[in-house]
């Protein structure tokens, strides 16, 4: 059986797949592994749990690829890391995470920023960036889960802040209070803690996230004016 590996920040996970084509979804981050230092993850239990959520037309290798998010996230949680549902970009040497309900314009926001700032914007990850807590700081890395548009990022950066998107008929920006940001933030962590230890690990990451980094609400019309307003606002955190 072939064993593969992927690096997430300071850590590596090794995988053995049930379907030959599954690793193709994980390019360019995956490679064959000769390393024997780490346990091998194999997602069969999660696949059975996830399969009912997918249509029959969706291939088993795709379901295997998707089911690995949860399994990988649980393994990485023990290493102080977690996947986070967001579009992550690098702008002025820092990582900015755009979050929001489906359809609130995360991808549009990235495209508009790219249009405005071109080479100053680098993509970290289009759907599930990896957040790693190290010495009290959070660093953001790419992951193989890029969303339906397959926005595969290469950059990584120390976290700058989180922008919570909401669609509106005007553009408005403000910092959210901890109380207000807590619940929406928690729902972006792509992990389902199994026990007290997992919950404590996750709450430790959330604690640093909320104490140290701003969570900003951007009500927006998904236009260039929103990009101007937001980028100007972010300057105070640079």
């Amino acid at each position: 059986m072939k064993v593969y590996e992927i690096s997430y920040g300071q850590h590596k996970l090794r995988y053995a797949f049930h379907y030959e084509k599954t690793p193709l979804y994980m390019r360019p981050y995956i490679r064959l592994s000769e390393n024997e230092e780490y346990d091998i993850l194999s997602p069969i239990d999660y696949m059975e749990e996830l399969r009912p959520y997918y249509t029959e037309n969706q291939d088993d290798d795709y379901v295997e690829y998707k089911s690995l998010i949860n399994l990988s996230s649980l393994a990485l949680l023990r290493e102080n890391g977690v996947f986070f549902h967001a579009v992550a970009i690098r702008y002025k040497q820092k990582a900015w995470l755009f979050i929001g309900r489906s359809g609130t314009g995360k991808t549009t926001q990235y495209k508009n920023w790219k249009k405005r700032y071109r080479d100053q914007i680098e993509l970290i990850c289009g759907d599930m960036p990896y957040l790693e807590l190290n010495d009290g700081n959070i660093h953001v890395y790419p992951s193989p889960w890029n969303g339906k548009e397959r926005f595969k990022g290469k950059a990584d950066a120390p976290l700058g802040g989180i922008v919570f998107l909401e669609k509106g008929d005007h553009n408005e920006i403000r910092e959210m209070s901890v109380k207000e940001a807590l619940a929406p933030l928690f729902h972006q962590f792509a992990v389902e803690p199994q026990n007290e230890e997992d919950i404590r690990q996750l709450s430790n990451i959330a604690d640093v996230l909320l104490k140290k980094y701003p969570v900003i609400k951007l009500i927006n019309k998904a236009d260039q004016e929103a990009v101007e307003l937001c980028s100007k606002y972010l300057e105070k955190y640079l």
Binding site: V178, A183, I199, D207
Partner: peptide
């Protein structure tokens, strides 16, 4: 589990309870 996150008291439920208990409550 009762956790303290950024000076807030928060209840967080493990996966096996998620069907009948809210995930996060302050």
């Amino acid at each position: 589990i009762l956790c303290e996150i950024a000076d807030q008291n928060v209840l967080i439920a493990a996966k096996h309870l998620r069907k009948d208990v809210p995930y996060v409550t302050s």
